[in-house]
């Protein structure tokens, strides 16, 4: 059968590769090409203007504002999500103490595990619409409705410059935690119970167990989570587009690169400029992924 292997594999791959090549790779290449033009989207001809778009980008305040927001998301989205997910995963797997030589989660952990995963199943646009209602500034909003019942002043989650981005970050975290709980649970499940047992015999507390046993053995999984969440921090387009006041507002307080690309393309018909932003985003993401993998490189613990 060995001689027929390559035609067989190629036969399977040719269609997806062709589709990928046409709709992804070719589109990327064209975005690079367009970033050097002042194309406005309505004529078949394009004019090349060298690096003008990138120079303009460098002096664009909104662009830097978006970058700042990405940095903030880049720090807090992975941090909060991973801390929460680790905490929940630990409770679900180890938090119940050990019985008969097996570690267990807290009572009802099987149910929680499923419940935590629910947000992952909802489409992002749906999540955005739901949370727009949760955050609504008048008494029809979930939170402000409750506050109103108790006579409190409404909190302008999305309409307050200082709160808006954090409110959106909270939704991102809410949506992501479930997936990482499951991921970390799987990772914890693969840690041999003898190690916990041995540590417990040596008198380790739950805290010590977590920091000295669980965490090091989960390092690879954590690293993966960090990169994934970092990349998600470079996106955030859907939530910002649907939820934020005045699209990316108030006053640019929540804008992200994805939204600016969309705005320049869709509203201002500046396709060349939008492509230049896309190219910058490409390099930012790649750099981030490469850096993270370098910095977090550690010898994996062989089990």
């Amino acid at each position: 059968m060995k001689h027929g292997r390559y035609p067989f594999i190629i036969g399977f791959l040719i269609v997806p590769v062709a589709i990928y090549g046409t709709f992804v790779v070719a589109a990327y290449l064209q975005a690079f090409q367009l970033s050097f033009t002042n194309w406005r989207g309505f004529s078949p001809d394009v004019n090349y203007i060298g690096f003008d778009n990138f120079t303009k980008l460098f002096h664009d305040n909104v662009f830097w504002k978006a970058i700042q927001h990405h940095i903030l998301l880049l720090i807090f989205l992975p941090l909060l999500t991973i801390i929460l997910a680790l905490f929940f995963a630990f409770l679900l797997n180890v938090g119940g103490g050990s019985k008969g030589g097996r570690t267990r989660g807290v009572w009802g952990s099987k149910v929680y595990r499923v419940v935590f995963f629910f947000p992952q199943l909802l489409a992002l646009a749906l999540v955005a619409v739901i949370f727009a209602r949760v955050y609504s500034p008048d008494e029809s909003g979930l939170i402000n409705g409750l506050l109103h019942q108790f006579g409190g002043d409404p909190i302008l989650f999305l309409a307050d410059k200082n709160l808006a981005l954090w409110s959106i970050l909270a939704v991102l975290v809410w949506q992501a935690v479930g997936f990482y709980v499951v991921l970390f649970s799987a990772g914890m499940g693969s840690i041999p119970t003898e190690i916990y047992e041995a540590a417990a015999l040596d008198g380790a507390t739950r805290g010590t167990l977590f920091f000295k046993v669980t965490l090091p053995l989960l390092w690879n999984t954590l690293q993966v989570a960090w990169v994934y969440l970092g990349i998600a921090a470079f996106d955030a387009f859907a939530l910002v587009n649907v939820m934020s006041v005045d699209r990316g507002g108030p006053d640019g307080a929540t804008t992200v690169l994805g939204l600016e690309i969309f705005r320049n393309m869709q509203d201002y018909a500046q396709f060349g400029y939008a492509s230049a932003m896309g190219v910058v985003l490409f390099f930012l993401t790649i750099t981030f992924a490469a850096l993270t993998l370098r910095v977090t490189r550690r010898d994996a613990v062989e089990l």
Partner: peptide, 17 residues
């Protein structure tokens, strides 16, 4: 990383195909 991070980029390229 390359695929996810660039979600926004092909949108421009697509329209310009």
């Amino acid at each position: 990383a390359a695929a996810v991070g660039l979600l926004a980029t092909p949108a421009v390229g697509m329209l310009s195909a």
